[in-house]
Amino acid sequence: MSLRPGAIHYFAAELANAREAPKICVLNQATGDPEAQIGAAYAAFAGSEFAMSHLQLFPMPNVDDIRAHILAQDIVWVGGGSVANLCAVWRVHGLDEILYEAWQAGVVMAGVSAGSICWHTGGTTDSYGLQLREFTDGLGWLPYSNGVHYDAEEQRRPKMHELIGRGVLPDGYATEEGAGLVYRGTTLAEAVADREGALAYELRRAPDGSVVETTLPTRVLPVPPN
């Protein structure tokens, strides 16, 4: 929470064609909008080129016009936590439709963990308890499954294989810590990483129900300016 903006944030600004004072809005609904996390984000971006704001929904929205605020951004950055709660809260507030409109208008949608799964059909989640379960109620803009923390939690890889193999989740992609997926429209354009050795994978169900895992070429992003 104390880290300054990293290579992925500067890359998101590049994708948004916003190289000077890129506007980034941070969403932390996956953890219930804790004040400490919001404050840590402002501290992290302080003194950087980024013009940071946040959208809070707990206990109530912190901006009068959510749609106008989101559409004015270059980047929307979504933090991790419970992807099930995240998507449910967004839908209650109609934020899912606003975010979709912003995405279609060219705002870059990005995030980590729950903030990565949410754009997809689903993935594995600990939203319901310590044992990983399937999550199939993502926004679905990207019609794939998304496996996060692929090298950091021992349940993640076998659970993704199981769920795709059984047809619970569609074919999709997975990322190790530090790696990310870049889509242009709904097509995967490339995999990127903020360090050497972080990898991304394609996961495809074979006719016999097994899952074929293919390592994707992963481009290491340049070190951001100090």
Rank of each mutant, 00 (worst) to 15 (best):
A152D: 13
V220Y: 11
L181H: 00
A110Q: 07
H9P: 07
C25R: 05
I164T: 06
F45N: 03
E153M: 14
P170A: 05
H9M: 14
N62Q: 08
M1Q: 13
P222M: 08
Q131W: 05
V168G: 05
H54T: 11
A191K: 02
L15E: 11
G180Q: 00
L169N: 02
M109K: 12
T215C: 06
L71V: 03
A16M: 06
E213R: 02
L139N: 02
D171G: 00
A41D: 00
T136G: 06
D151N: 00
D171L: 00
S127V: 01
R156D: 03
D65W: 04
L221D: 00
A7N: 10
Y150S: 04
A41G: 02
S116G: 06
N226T: 12
A198C: 08
A189I: 09
F50D: 02
I164Y: 07
R91S: 10
S145C: 03
G47E: 12
A68M: 07
G39R: 13
A30L: 09
G122W: 03
A105C: 09
A193P: 08
E153T: 13
H69N: 09
E134K: 01
R205Y: 10
D96E: 15
D137G: 10
L142I: 06
A41F: 01
G94E: 12
V112F: 13
Y42V: 08
G80Y: 02
R204E: 14
G197W: 04
W119T: 07
V112G: 12
A88Q: 01
V78M: 10
E14P: 04
S210K: 10
G6N: 12
D208N: 10
I8F: 15
R205E: 12
S53M: 01
A18Q: 02
C25T: 10
F58T: 14
L203E: 06
R166I: 00
V168F: 09
Q56C: 13
N146E: 15
R156M: 11
L57G: 03
I164M: 07
I75Q: 02
P170S: 09
A189H: 14
L199N: 14
L221K: 10
V92F: 04
Y201H: 08
E196A: 10
P5G: 06
I117P: 04
A36S: 13
E14D: 13
T187M: 08
P217W: 00
L57T: 07
I24S: 06
V211G: 01
E101P: 10
A193N: 09
A40K: 15
A40Y: 13
D208Q: 05
E177H: 05
N226Q: 14
G140W: 03
V192H: 04
W103E: 02
R195E: 12
V212K: 12
E176M: 01
E49L: 10
A68N: 09
A18M: 01
L27Y: 02
L221S: 01
G180P: 01
D33N: 08
E49Q: 12
R204Y: 05
I75V: 09
V148N: 09
H9Q: 14
W141V: 07
F45L: 06
G94W: 14
A102P: 14
M60Q: 13
L163W: 15
